[in-house]
Write a protein that binds this DNA or RNA. Structure first.
Lengths: 330, 330
DNA sequence: CATTCGGATGAGCAAATGTTCTGACATGAC
DNA sequence: GTCATGTCAGAACATTTGCTCATCCGAATG
């Protein structure tokens, strides 16, 4: 609109019109200067320049529209903030936390874990019931969590454990997490992956697991991470998945898992017989959880994260800078 | 205050405190980003970040105080605006107009004249009574004045004329100026400089000049310029001033003149016999004029301008970029 | 010279912003 | 444990800002 005004105005005569136009620009820059640089109020400027306050409003708006006023944020980590905001807007996340990484080739897990620990420390409140998955990232975040006694905290494992004893048992995350806040931990006393659908049904129906799952309906927060499907990923390493199964899942389109529910890059749970052998909370059930926190990052999880973002629509995403860029580019 | 807070806060423990401090910074940058870059309102940001709106106010103020938010005006002529504002603040001027000069060595008179013409064109209103000096700058501004018929305009010459006929008679400025607006011009039918105090008295008291001066009490605006005291200045060139007089004035401390009232750099009218022979309005009288416009520039007038700024405290100053810098530096 | 039109201007209102005061909370000292 | 201390968040108010509509002015036109 203003641009049209300009051209219409300009085709008049020469000298006076030009000078009036200059005067307009002069006034605009002057108003912008006094407002943004000197910090005067619009009323003051209006009085000084001898025009109405409304005119100042218009001049300032025009100056901003023309880009004559440039506002930049100059602070450490501001690029992270920009990325975070981009993620939030793109994926409908309430809050994204990005851990800075110094070297793009590094494993981002420690950084993500630290960020996750900080976040969890701040968000925990008395009376909370938290559901958790497990994995290396979550486990690594334990030392970063500022534990303190909070009344009535309950932590529920959303996924079965592993049989194999290991030095670091990621599956114990829920337990240790509960301890940090003096709360009760509810583990799923079962493998994440059992031999057959029948075993699964038996466990669920006749061994008390259903009760634990029922508690998942009342969760205040769920802490989840995704697994990739490469050979390095926890799922594979802890021995739950054979190479044949892995291939078969990949062939079926899987790019990773969310509580051992294998998903594709579009956020769909793939159709595969292994589903009937997994002991984990239903993903649709988690949708009712008000705070869904997705904590993951790393080169081999980009596709899985993309899917997970669609599938569970997390309210909070904690990942690293490099992964964030990949998610936004993809 | 905040700095003290910081130091007091920091001396607590390590990890948590650092992370809380980081969280504060994170929140601040995030608020600044959402406010200044994304243009959200403070309420929206408060809701998104889960804090009170007042906190956002504080975060934004803190970010600005720390200089994390940088606002720059990026437009042509913005440096001029900055200079103008500096002049206004330093010398208590309502409005300074600076003409841009391409080459610092050039004579700035044409540029100043153009700016003066634009200003005068805009400021003229029906019913105005304007007092004027004369000089090359004012005369040169005539072609830049957008003349139009305004009711009841009166233009009064504040200074006597020159005897010598010249191709361009600067002393006729008042007359030509009045014509541009269809108003009445009142020239002082007398030389600016007469031979003796007695002649001056005779003219004032018995030749009707006093009446013209009396009109100067009701001026709405005075257009003034200063003269330097170099050999090139109008005062000297039109033959009013002999070389001996010029020397004598310089010895007495004169750096230039304002309506042939010779002044020093501190803005005092110097004590000199020539004063008793000048036919001009008293400078103190001009102080009552609501709009005092000082129009001058050029290398040889810096000192005179400095004095004039003090002496008549103009409400409007029209000069050039180079002179402006000199005034601010001096 | 009257007319008409576009753009600029000012009053009044609604929204946003800034400030001040009060109370809650955490912390450290006794 | 109690108390002083200082920090921080929130309610209420004052100010500033943004917007809309009615109006006015000036320029182009017939």
């Amino acid at each position: 609109m203003r641009g049209q005004d300009k051209s219409q105005t300009r085709k008049k005569v020469g000298a006076e019109q030009v000078s009036l136009s200059d005067a307009g620009q002069r006034l605009r820059i002057r108003a912008a200067w006094m407002y943004f640089i000197e910090g005067k109020t619009q009323s003051e400027i209006a009085d000084t320049l001898g025009v109405g306050r409304v005119t100042i409003v218009r001049l300032l708006a025009e100056a901003r529209r023309r880009g004559e006023v440039r506002i930049t944020i100059d602070a450490p980590l501001v690029e992270l903030t920009e990325l975070e905001r981009a993620l939030e807007c793109r994926f409908g996340i309430e809050q994204a936390f990005l851990a800075p990484v110094s070297d793009a080739g590094d494993d981002p897990t420690p950084a993500i874990a630290a960020a996750a620990g900080t976040f969890i420390s701040q968000v925990m409140r008395p009376g909370m019931t938290v559901g958790t998955g497990w994995g290396r990232t979550l486990y690594t975040s334990l030392p970063h969590i500022h534990g303190r006694i909070l009344d009535d905290v309950r932590v529920i494992s959303l996924l079965g454990g592993i049989a194999q004893a290991r030095r670091f048992n990621p599956a114990e995350f829920a337990w240790q997490f509960a301890e940090l806040f003096g709360g009760d931990g509810y583990l799923l006393p079962a493998p994440a992956l059992v031999d057959s659908p029948e075993t699964r049904q038996a466990l669920l129906e006749r061994c008390g697991l259903a009760e634990v799952f029922a508690m998942a309906d009342g969760l205040d927060m769920a802490l989840l991470s995704v697994g990739g499907i490469s050979r390095q990923t926890t799922t594979y390493r802890v021995g739950h998945l054979s190479e044949a199964e892995r291939r078969s899942l990949i062939d079926a389109g899987a790019v990773g898992d969310l509580l051992y529910n294998f998903i594709d890059a579009d956020g769909r749970v793939i159709d595969h017989p292994i589903n009937a052998r997994v002991i984990s909370v239903d993903l649709p059930r988690l949708q009712k959880t008000p705070q869904r926190v997705l904590i993951s990052g790393g080169r081999d999880k980009h596709a899985a994260l993309t899917g997970a973002l669609t599938l569970i629509a997390p309210t909070v995403l904690i990942t690293d800078e490099v992964t964030a860029r990949a998610l936004l580019d993809g």
